[in-house]
Structures are given as C-alpha cells and as structure tokens.
Computed example of a mutant assay.
Amino acid sequence: MSLVRPLVRRAVPEDAAELVRLRKIMLDSMSPSADVSWQPGTVAALRAHLADPGGELTAFVIDAPGADGRLAACASGAIHHGLGSPGNPAGTSGHVFNVCTDPEYRRRGFSRACVEALLDWYREREVHRIDLHATAEGEPLYTSLGFARTPAPAMRLTL
C-alpha cells in the first residue's frame, strides 16, 4: 500500500470557524470545558490574521475529504520577535500551536503534513528556532520532526 501525501494548503479567512472548531477539539482533549465564550472573538481574530498573507500568524490545513467546507486537520504558527542571544542571534522564533486532526481523520498523516508545511513556512522566513508545547499523544510526531525537550521550564502569569 502506498501512502499518498495529503493536499495541504494555507488557510484563508473563510477557514477561521473551522480552525476554531478544531482548536476546541484539541483543547478538550487536554482539559474538557463547556465554555465556548472565547470562540467568536477567536474566529474574528483569525479572520483578520489570515487575511494578511504577509502576516506573522498563519495556519496550514487539509480539507476533509468529501465534506465541503470542513477541515480534517490543521497546524498554526506565529513568528515572535525578541532580542538576540548566542543560540538565536536574530532574536526571532516561531511557535507551533493548534495542531489538531478531527478524530474521524486521524492516523492518516494529516497533522504531520500540516506541521511540515508550517516548518517550510518558517524556513522561507529564516526563522530557525521553533517552539511548541506537546501533549504526550503528539510528542512522537514532533520528536520525529526533530523537536527535542529543552531544559528551560515554562511558567505563565495570567493578568
């Protein structure tokens, strides 16, 4: 059996609601919540970001086979600018987030294809340091793509 590489495309503003639907699936897999109050604002923000093809936030998607307007998988990313350091002289970094495949379409290489397209996008923009937070389920995919755990612990403050 030969593997056919799924068709990956860059997301457009019309994909925003589907990207948020997939984000909810991803978030619920880590910590289920009935709260959907964040979704309308997120859809609006995504539409604005995706309308700017030169912008520093993007997503790559795979359309659900035979399901007009639905997405099977996605991977999003953003470019951040900071100060340079010995390991990152330019001070730019990328962050991969919102990697999700609809449960109906899992185990077909869709997330891998979306993340690979996102990594190509970073390469084109000469962003060499890419970070992400991985679930235990996603970690084997990221490891196979060259990601490694870092010694720096993450911390967060919510204001």
Rank of each mutant, 00 (worst) to 15 (best):
R21Q: 00
R21G: 03
R21K: 09
L22E: 05
L22Y: 07
L22W: 06
L22Q: 10
R23V: 00
R23H: 13
R23F: 09
R23Q: 12
K24G: 04
K24H: 13
I25F: 12
M26R: 10
L27W: 06
L27A: 15
L27D: 00
L27M: 15
S29P: 06
M30H: 12
M30V: 13
M30I: 12
S31H: 09
P32F: 03
P32H: 05
S33E: 06
S33N: 11
A34V: 08
D35Y: 06
D35N: 14
S37D: 03
S37N: 03
S37Y: 00
W38S: 12
W38F: 14
Q39M: 14
Q39Y: 01
P40F: 05
G41M: 06
G41L: 09
T42S: 10
T42H: 05
V43N: 04
A44K: 08
A44S: 07
A44Y: 02
A44P: 00
R47H: 00
R47E: 15
A48L: 14
A48G: 07
L50I: 12
A51V: 02
A51E: 05
D52G: 00
D52A: 11
D52P: 01
D52K: 10
D52I: 05
P53H: 10
P53Q: 08
G54H: 15
G54V: 05
G54D: 15
G55L: 11
G55N: 13
G55K: 13
L57G: 00
L57R: 13
L57C: 04
T58R: 05
A59T: 02
F60C: 07
D63L: 01
D63P: 00
D63R: 05
D63H: 00
A64V: 01
P65M: 07
P65G: 04
G66W: 01
A67Q: 12
A67G: 00
A67E: 14
G69F: 02
G69P: 01
R70A: 15
R70M: 08
R70D: 12
L71C: 11
L71H: 07
A72R: 01
A73F: 06
A73R: 08
A73V: 10
C74G: 02
C74I: 00
A75E: 04
A75V: 03
S76G: 04
G77V: 07
G77T: 04
G77Y: 05
A78Y: 01
A78W: 00
I79P: 07
I79V: 15
H80P: 01
H81N: 07
H81D: 11
H81W: 09
L83V: 12
L83G: 04
G84R: 09
S85M: 10
P86I: 13
P86Q: 11
P86C: 14
P86N: 10
P86W: 09
G87N: 14
G87E: 15
G87W: 12
G87H: 13
G87Y: 12
N88S: 10
P89T: 12
P89H: 11
G91R: 06
G91L: 07
T92G: 02
S93Y: 12
S93D: 10
G94N: 09
G94L: 08
